[in-house]
Design a binder for these strands. Structure first.
Lengths: 338, 338
DNA sequence: TTGAAAGCGCTACCAC
DNA sequence: GTGGTAGCGCTTTCAA
């Protein structure tokens, strides 16, 4: 039997009325000029009875439940997702809110059902997240709700969105190599022509910085963003006589494939080739040697989005670009010669 | 403005009372012998007004909210966690329930606060999960609640728990090698003496099956369950003249380290050494060649736990051991000779 | 068969 | 300063 003690019980035990007990328990005793003596009695009674307000009853009156929902397309397929959920969880808890988590599985019908269920339970606000950065269309039920977009954008509605600063991340990746003396023979591995915003932005940032330094990419090895594809394509590149001084991989999984292709041919990182990557997933520290990677700041992004949702003032800026921290590890070493 | 339409509105439009409307909308029209004509009017009115019952108001009366909570120690550090969350999400949705997700961060104070918050919102039932199999102590607030344990056990209370069938998984891992002709030179890599139940059970299963076949492990290479440690310890083993025909790794991360140690020395999988592992994480398919692994059935476990919680009949069996599916890939090949 | 009315626990208005 | 009282939207008993 949880929450059996009611406000009424507290009032009775404090020998006062529900109203008075209510005011002191909601911290409005000063405002209502409740006698100090009364105040103490109420507080003591509440304590002794271990009173806890029934949030459902309160919500029925106030229409606020102190709950938010994280609606995401898919959580399990991407190991990265953990950061987003974790960040949202921690931030919500910090604001005294609880978090519903939902997965739409990219199914509009399921999505609509879930949004309905959430609304029926009077969720206060929504985090609408995508596992990879892209433009989304908000489900109809969310159009009139308080929403912050996480790792995605929309053109349908004026609502704040939080994304990684991929462009700057790209610049940083290139800068790491320039600072260690790499100028020629820098290859990009991945598929930058993809629909995926991240790829385009990262590539743009890389090229921008390289150009500013008076140099450019030696070329691109095309492959999907998965180890197997990178292993094969980069292996083919090497077998075809391709030679790289440094490689920028569009994510850690691609870097894993590159490592595999290299070691299978007796080449070493960073001895023969320096490697820089993006995401800073678990893989980055598991690879041998550990991989220098520009991190996807998932936790921080989620925290920012929650703050936008629950913070006091409505944000002036609609777009928040969260910096991608650079994690320097042993996969980069100074270029052989000047 | 969501949920603005009330039962009252529907009753008015259907030209009947709230009670009648209520009965037909909750499907108790037959039981209450509501006139077919009335029934139709109510249904039509509800449809036209897009009536949706306010679950908070309903909950205030019935004390059921159709929500469950997943309380977990930590979600972000283990990429595996995704499966558990995903499974719980899908199963809960299947039962028309929404899922609160909480992370206690192994902090008893935070855990207690969260349990309190959940109770204040009248969560119907709880999934108490651990990211690695172990014995847990339930927070006080959960002692009187409907709880199912996920990937953990407790001695404090009689409540159902769901764990992987690690013992059988161990037997299967050994069987895979026996069936491909491996009898001698089978090494275990990992730390089976750990506090972790999984390690002990897996090892026990392996030894059982090997013994039944009249053979035994050639030995154990001790290391923690992380790539780096496995890379170093297994590397040292090889450098010390150690030779293995096949290796059973206590998880995929260990297998990754073993792969790295092998390829760094020009040895190949499965050409020189066959490798079998546990967990079937993302890594297993990313490694080159893809790794044969005995899967941790996280989704299925979560689904089972939800069913125990929400299913009609109270489970007769308190303990559910979920089989670990074997994923055969290219890391095993027949032993060189008989 | 249908309808009036009470009440879940809380908030908030308005008298005293 | 304090205490009735009226709902929030729903369920459910009881009478008609």
């Amino acid at each position: 039997m949880p929450s059996r003690v009611t406000l009424q019980d507290v009032a009775v035990r404090a020998d006062t009325s529900r109203t008075t007990a209510h005011y002191v328990l909601t911290g409005r005793d000063r405002e209502m000029r409740i006698a100090e003596e009364t105040r103490r009695r109420v507080l003591r009674a509440a304590n002794e009875l271990r009173y806890r307000p029934d949030l459902m009853a309160r919500g029925l009156r106030t229409r606020v439940t102190r709950t938010i929902a994280l609606i995401t397309d898919t959580i399990a397929t991407e190991a990265y997702a953990g950061g987003l959920v974790h960040g949202a969880l921690a931030a919500a808890a910090g604001h005294g809110h609880l978090l519903f988590v939902c997965e739409t599985e990219e199914d509009p019908a399921l999505e609509e059902r879930l949004v309905g269920e959430l609304a029926d339970r009077h969720v206060d606000a929504y985090l609408y997240a995508s596992m990879f950065t892209r433009d989304v269309s908000l489900p109809a039920g969310l159009r009139t709700q308080r929403v912050a977009l996480l790792n995605c954008r929309t053109s349908q509605r004026k609502c704040p969105w939080v994304v990684p600063d991929e462009r700057r991340g790209g610049r940083d990746a290139a800068r790491i190599l320039l600072e260690t003396g790499h100028r020629e023979g820098i290859w990009l591995v991945g598929e930058p022509n993809e629909q995926v915003v991240a790829g385009l932005e990262r590539t743009a940032g890389i090229q921008e910085t390289l150009r500013a330094a008076g140099t450019a990419l030696a070329g691109t090895v095309h492959c999907t963003w998965w180890p197997e594809s990178a292993y094969e394509e980069f292996g083919a590149f090497l077998d075809g006589g391709g030679r790289a001084s440094a490689v920028i991989c569009l994510n850690d999984r691609v870097a894993m494939g590159v490592y595999q292709a290299l070691t299978a041919r007796g080449l070493s990182v960073p001895g023969d080739v320096s490697v820089v990557s993006f995401d800073d997933s678990d893989l980055a520290v598991w690879l041998q040697p550990p991989l220098t990677s520009v991190a996807l700041p998932h936790r921080e992004m989620a925290a920012r989005a929650v703050r936008l949702l629950l913070g006091r003032q409505t944000p002036t800026e609609l777009e928040v670009r969260v910096p991608m921290p650079v994690r320097l590890r042993e996969s980069v070493r100074p270029a052989a010669s000047a």
